[in-house]
Amino acid sequence: MSSDHRPAVMRGSGRPASPYWNPYLAGIGLGLVLLAAFVLVGRGLGASGAFSSSVAWLVNLVAPAHAQSNEYLQGYLGDGTTHPLKAWLVFEVLGVMAGALFSGLLAGRARIMVEKGPRVSTGVRLLCAFAGGILMAFGAHLARGCTSGQALTGGALLNVGSWAFMLMVFVGGYAVAWFMRWQWR
């Protein structure tokens, strides 16, 4: 009997984490989920849209007049007859949370920690994470989707914009990788 009564998710290093799956196996699983989305609902997977719905909902709570006069947020609020969070991607992203937590708990990988290289402080790493999130939001909105909604979904459907986008994600990433290596290596 362990003396640690915190839930397994916080104990962390209690047992060694299982190795990650073979990338091809995980990729086939991901591809089959994507295919199921195409067949069942006629759309692919996504993520960034759920953030937009959540932000629109929050702004509408705090400053309704401002939210409703903003053309971009208005698009996610609709005509007011449906709750802004009653959106397909919001439910899908809630599922992503549940599925990832389930997998992480099974593998002993779920724990409170910061992912970073050995040379960077936690504070700087979190600052970079925040800045990266802001850049990501702009990139995803300019491109009408992120790595899931554009690259993965549109990639499988041979969407022209998705393939151009995907190529540029790698170009952008490799272009700055050398300058950011202190954060990861």
């Binding site: 992503v96 724990r111 990266g132 850049l135």
Partner: peptide, 28 residues
């Protein structure tokens, strides 16, 4: 958008979908 997102990926370490998976498994 792809270029900006690629930069954000390396600076921040995630994309929107993977950040959801990471926060769900406790990554601050």
């Amino acid at each position: 958008g792809g270029l900006v997102l690629g930069v954000g990926f390396v600076v921040g370490g995630y994309c929107p979908g993977t950040s959801v998976a990471s926060l769900a498994t406790g990554r601050i």
